[in-house]
Nucleic acid binder design. Structure first.
Lengths: 214, 214
DNA sequence: TGAGAGAACTAACTAGCGTTAGTTTCCCTC
DNA sequence: GAGGGAAACTAACGCTAGTTAGTTCTCTCA
């Protein structure tokens, strides 16, 4: 199949593009709620409002659909994190603002942390290639940043990775444990107020961890 | 094909009680690795070394088996937490030692945090009845404890629940994100050294959060 | 206007799921 | 030894999974 030597003036079909997006939306919701194994193509097709075999006009199979959902979902988060890390104005990025930015971003896409958590439990094999090109440099960068901050005086260089893991677990965990939190605390941690309140707390928490001790 | 009757001096025919335990062990490993939907009774039976229908001599169905796994697994953790909370020697429990105790306990049973995380993602409906009788009083108790500590001076009473959620997410997340952590950091966070190192870090982290500021 | 491609459909297949029925085997007790 | 029950087995069920084949509709463009 030749890759269309001349540029197509107008995309061949637009209706197909739209349904592809709808399928991705539906699949994202299903996979986020019930995981890969717990999601059936019937679930997805029913949400979209089409028959199961029609899905195969847009994605090769269930796994390809899942990979596409993951890739589309992770894109924005990775670029936000990437931009925040590579800002590099000499000054180190304020953890308070970074954590608030992430919380706000994920608050708009609460499916994402669930997808990521399911993926990690499953071994993270679909996530690894997505992260490989971003997370490694980001870690190297953030390690460099962290080491140039007063925090290193408290934590020591070999404890820096744990700060990153903690950051990750707090943010992702806030979303994946929301059902438990809500049933125990009463208020919804995914509501606007819940997100604002928790973002404030997590931001202050990390700021206090990073800042120098006396 | 009959399995060669002449050999097998002691056929691996086990007594029911033992088999039930073996089934629970196998099911715990399977459910922890692949979740409820991702686990098949064939997986479990193969690990135990029996046929699928034999499982039904010990558990009513797949869901009952899952509930039994969860209940057996959660027991020790709940009692440790419960004991630690209700110690109540007037003094508040040292978060450093509590977090180390939990990390050590879960380090011996790394299936548990994964089971819990899968459960929470699925809605936590099987977990709720187990936690209802323990977690609520524990939260009330720990809130009382926290409020009597210097920590409240820094965090304010309404932020106490977030301290608990953070505690939970850090400890559980350490285990559920181990695959990612290992592939990125190089060393295994579930090994003896990894656990010791991380317990130390998390303990210090929480101690520094709880202690008074200036 | 007619050809072709995209995207929906119906129908059907295979494989595997959880589950049940009925049978056999072993061990313990009388 | 004989009887009974626990626990293993074989065989088969109904259902649903993901997937494929083949058809129809419709829109775009030459």
């Amino acid at each position: 199949m030749p890759p269309s030597p001349e540029i197509a003036p107008t995309p061949p079909r637009r209706r197909g593009q739209e349904t592809s997006e709808h399928i991705l939306d539906a699949a994202e919701a299903c996979f986020a709620r019930k995981g890969y194994a717990g999601t059936t193509l019937r679930n997805v097709a029913d949400v979209v409002g089409i028959r199961i075999p029609s899905l195969y006009n847009h994605f090769a199979n269930k796994e390809a659909l899942y990979a596409a959902v993951l890739e589309r979902g992770m894109g924005p988060v990775l670029s936000v994190l990437s931009a925040s890390m590579e800002d590099g104005s000499g000054d180190y990025p304020e953890p308070n603002s970074l954590i608030r930015e992430m919380m706000m971003l994920l608050g708009d896409r609460p499916n994402l942390p669930r997808l990521v958590q399911y993926e990690l439990l499953a071994g993270g094999h679909h996530l690894a290639p997505l992260l490989e090109n971003w997370l490694r440099p980001a870690i190297a960068q953030s390690m460099k940043i962290l080491k140039s901050t007063p925090a290193v005086r408290r934590w020591g260089p070999d404890q820096m990775p744990y700060l990153l893991v903690t950051f990750f677990n707090i943010v992702v965990g806030h979303f994946t444990t929301a059902s438990l939190t809500e049933s125990l605390m009463g208020n919804n941690p995914l509501s606007a107020e819940g997100l604002a309140e928790s973002s404030k707390f997590y931001g202050e928490l990390f700021a206090s961890l990073i800042e120098a001790e006396d």
